[in-house]
Design a protein around this nucleic acid. Structure first.
Length: 853
RNA sequence: GGGCACGUAGAUCAGCGGAAGAUCGCUGCUUUCGCAAAGCAGAGGUCGGGGGUUCAAAUCCCCCCGUGUCCA
């Protein structure tokens, strides 16, 4: 990066000098006399015992100091965003404050909610779990305080100079840091295809903040300037608090009394880990993550189970629920939403604890059995087994060892070796913005004015063609709904040509025609939307919201929409829940939804400032993922459900008609899917189902009401028939066996009985017959059969010293038989006809010879 | 999203290329005034589904489905 990027007026004004760190070699700016940047590892921690701020702060005090400082300097204070980044498909969690504004705001697609702004964003990072409690400074959840500015060419806010000025003023002003002790180290930040210079702010060995200036787009080897430049800062709240108190570890400073309480029962490391995890879990669960075995749910399960393991090892430990409650009380002082819905959170946690206990109990059994088996063969359990058990059964090694009579040592690097087992796996697919292959539109084409938001009933309109390219037409205004938000496209006509698909990219709506567009820019066209399809889609979409509301009422607020799809034929909604829906829950959801439909409540759709909407309704607005825009389109069923949504909706719940839930399934751990239909389609389906029932009843010859018992009877009959057939076959075989035995007569003395016969049976029957013949012991059966042009020779023996296999082998060459077996049963297949008979005679003779001995 | 493990009698599981098993539960008989218990006898299986390899597949291979688990 060009050194000029860091050569800021603010440094020169303030008398800073640029130096080079003797350790890491980086350039840095400072007022003090330093030969190295003031960050670990270039210099050691110098703040422990010597706080670097004028006075100690707790978390709350520091947060409000920071936000107040920026608010007083023209920044709008924003509330936190959810810790689960539902609006992105490349990450699970909000890992930095800038995530709140990616990708829509930072790409310039939509304006920021405020500009400039200040926020303290709780962020989750699970990549250093092993360090938590051990390092003294790692957290799975921490708050990233930030001030952001988004600069458009026509609307600059501030960039590097002012950012550094603000940062420096904060540190040296209200916080009272010694100006000479601060270093601004030159770094390069790169991410998501963007890059820019950044400055890392170090004091007394601690990296307090990072100031990033997103400025360029990487275009191959070249850098292009971004149309929108972004100030992305990150100030670690916990670090600030720690530095202000100068305690030995960050945990003491950050968690205060809560930490002291736990220290009475746990060693420092465990105490810190427990509070840290309790804090993360509270946020995760509040923000709607249900513990599961995949995606974001796994991380909730991971921290939950890690906590449980520690609690389980300590007899006087509090319960996990109590621990979470204690942490929630603390968090709720600043984030009141975390304290709400305690009962629901408890139920989720209890369900997860139960599952963990079950998994461990099952695993213990498997482990014991495996060890028994190994020991009986002279083997023993190895540390490799411990790894495999952890991986496939989820048993932590300490638990496995408890179960073993001769446990191996738990490897020091156990979890590293677990990680090694996962190397070479296919990486997760990279984030790709899902844009249809739409043609480029000249910048001069104005944004499409869309009418469906405020008027979903207009299905015929006049518009002017703004741009046409191949089959694609962009209009100056449209009422066609483009695929999005889980709602499929409208169809219809432009002029006489069918519109087969409508999609949106950026500000433009593209109508794809059935063939090459005859229209040219400037043409006037009439748009007609297929009204039946549109109405059905509206009904399905509104019904989705109603179901979502009912599910949250019935299941609890942890039930978040995890996906939805609305097509004309049917719609579905996926919600997070910790176990399959019970019949009763389903019945209540069904009743509640249809009750809301009957009540004919208004469905209000309107635009509202994002900040205001979030304040009024909270983040549960974002059921369908975050919706871009400074203004949110709110779809509200007063007193029941409010969501930010861009879809077309009915204006009254009664228009939905009726909602029929067609199917419920668990699509993965922690997510249930409801498939349903509403409106006309629900009636159609009801009719179809009725017809199917009628038809089934007619074919069974019973009234519909007796279908279940009729089917039961039918099944019983089928079963009876199966039994009878089986019985008859057995009797046939028994008859054959009796006949053959009689023909063979009684053997002399105690010599084994040899029964040889040609029969017409298949392989399986041969085996059964042989079994019948030799059941009483001391007998040899030599059976031959022909089926499908192949000859089969079967030998069974219960005679001591007579090997069925040897007898068989005496016959195999004669009919080119291939086969094998064991001393008690052997079979071969070869040529049919005379060769088979020859083989059979050879085998019979061999059997007779063997029994003569 | 990927890796691994698992799916066999009503339940818990064994078997891991050659004639489907154990324990508990169930039914009947013996014993008892009755129950429990014990003994004896018996019923109960498309070995998750579908393809393939093989003379032969619960067993090996592939693809699905389901469950668990670890990792992103």
């Amino acid at each position: 990066m060009d050194p000029a990027e860091y050569d800021l007026p603010v440094f020169h004004r303030g008398g800073f000098r640029r130096r080079t760190c003797v350790v890491c070699g980086s350039g840095f700016w400072t007022l003090g006399e330093h030969d190295r940047c003031q960050e670990a590892p270039c210099r050691e921690y110098g703040f422990v015992g010597h706080p670097i701020f004028a006075r100690p702060y707790d978390v709350r005090g520091m947060r409000s100091e920071f936000l107040g400082f920026f608010e007083a300097r023209g920044h709008t204070r924003l509330r936190r965003y959810p810790t689960v980044a539902r609006w992105r498909n490349d990450v699970f969690f909000t890992q930095a404050s800038i995530y709140d504004f990616q990708p829509w705001v930072t790409s310039g697609a939509i304006p920021p909610p405020a500009n400039p702004l200040a926020i303290s964003q709780p962020v989750l990072r699970f990549n250093d779990l092993e360090e938590i409690g051990r390092s003294g400074r790692h957290f799975s959840l921490f708050e990233m305080m930030a001030h952001h500015a988004f600069n458009r060419p026509d609307h600059p806010v501030y960039f590097k100079d002012r950012t550094v000025e603000l940062c420096h003023e904060l540190l040296t002003g209200p916080l009272g840091t010694d100006p000479l002790g601060i270093t601004y180290k030159e770094e390069v930040w790169e991410g998501g295809g963007n890059l820019g210079p950044s400055l890392s702010v170090g004091v007394a060995g601690l990296e307090l903040a990072t100031l990033v200036f997103m400025e360029y787009v990487r275009d191959g080897a070249d850098l292009r300037p971004m149309p929108l430049t972004v100030v992305d800062t990150g100030y670690g709240l916990e670090r600030f608090v720690w530095a202000s108190q100068g305690t030995k570890t960050a945990y003491e400073a950050v968690f205060g009394a809560e930490y002291d309480e736990l220290r009475r029962t746990f060693p420092p490391r465990e105490a810190a880990l427990l509070i840290d995890h309790a804090r993360a879990l509270n946020f995760l669960l509040t923000d709607g993550v249900v513990p599961s075995n995949s995606k974001e749910g796994y991380f909730a399960r991971l921290v939950l189970r890690r906590s449980l393991r520690i609690l389980d090892q300590t007899p006087e430990a509090p319960t996990l629920v109590a621990l979470l409650d204690r942490a929630a009380r603390e968090i709720a002082l600043d984030f009141p939403e975390v304290g709400e819905h305690r009962d629901d959170l408890h139920r989720t946690v209890e369900a997860e604890i139960e599952r963990y206990r079950e998994a461990i109990a099952r695993a213990r059994q498997t482990i014991r059995r495996t060890e028994d088996r190994l020991r009986s063969t002279g083997g023993s359990v190895t540390s490799e087994d411990l790894l495999a058990w952890y991986d496939s059964l989820g048993v932590p090694p300490e638990v496995a060892v408890e179960e073993l009579a001769a446990p191996p040592a738990i490897p020091e690097d156990f979890y590293a070796r677990v990680a090694a087992r996962h190397e070479g796996e296919t990486p997760t697919t990279e984030y790709t913005e899902t844009t249809a292959p739409l043609p480029e539109v000249p910048a001069s084409v104005p944004a499409t004015e869309v009418g469906y938001y405020l008027d979903p009933y207009t299905v015929s309109f006049e518009a002017r063609v703004a741009h046409a390219d191949g089959p694609y037409v962009v209009l100056d205004r449209t009422y066609f709904y483009p695929t999005g938000g889980g709602q499929v496209t409208d169809t219809g006509h432009l002029g006489d040509l069918a519109v087969v698909e409508v999609s949106r990219r950026g500000p433009h709506v593209f109508h794809r025609l059935e063939r090459e567009s005859p229209f040219r820019a400037g043409d006037k066209v009439r748009g007609r939307i297929d009204p039946v399809r549109r109405t059905q889609l509206m009904q399905h979409h509104t019904a989705t919201h109603l179901l979502n509301g009912a599910l949250r009422e019935v299941l609890g607020p942890h039930a978040w929409q995890a996906g939805a799809y609305k097509a004309p034929e049917a719609a579905r909604i996926d919600v997070t829940h910790y176990r399959p829906l019970s019949k009763e829950e389903l019945r209540r959801v069904d009743r509640r939804v249809n009750e809301i439909v009957r009540e004919d409540r208004p469905v209000k759709s309107y635009f509202e400032a994002r900040t205001e909407a979030e304040r009024r309704f909270g983040f549960t607005l974002y059921q369908g993922g975050a919706v871009p825009g400074k203004e949110l389109r709110i779809v509200e069923v007063p007193g029941f459900d409010v969501e930010a949504c861009g879809g077309t909706h009915c204006t009254h719940t009664s228009e939905v008609g009726a909602v029929s839930i067609l199917d419920v399934e668990r699509i993965q751990d922690g997510i249930v899917r409801l498939t349903f239909a509403s409106g006309e389609r629900a009636l159609d389906l009801r009719e179809e189902h009725e017809e199917i029932l009628q038809e089934a009843a007619r074919r069974l010859g019973v009234p519909v009401a007796h279908l279940p018992s009729g089917i039961e009877r039918l099944l019983a009959e089928v079963e009876e028939g199966r039994r009878t057939r089986k019985e008859r076959r057995r009797e046939d075989l028994q008859g054959t066996a009796a006949r053959l035995r009689a023909e063979a007569g009684a053997p002399a003395d105690r010599r084994p009985l040899v029964i040889a016969a040609e029969v017409d049976l298949d392989r399986r029957e041969l085996m059964e017959l042989s079994r019948l013949l030799t059941r009483d012991g001391n007998a040899v059966a030599v059976l031959a059969a022909e089926r499908e042009g192949r000859g089969t020779l079967f030998v069974g023996s219960t005679a001591p010293g007579v090997s069925a296999l040897s007898v068989l082998e005496a016959g195999t060459p004669a009919f080119a038989g291939k086969g094998g077996g064991n001393p008690s049963a052997a079979t071969a297949v070869g040529e049919p006809g005379e060769p088979l008979r020859t083989a059979w005679r050879a085998a019979r003779d061999a059997a007779n010879r063997a029994t003569d001995d």
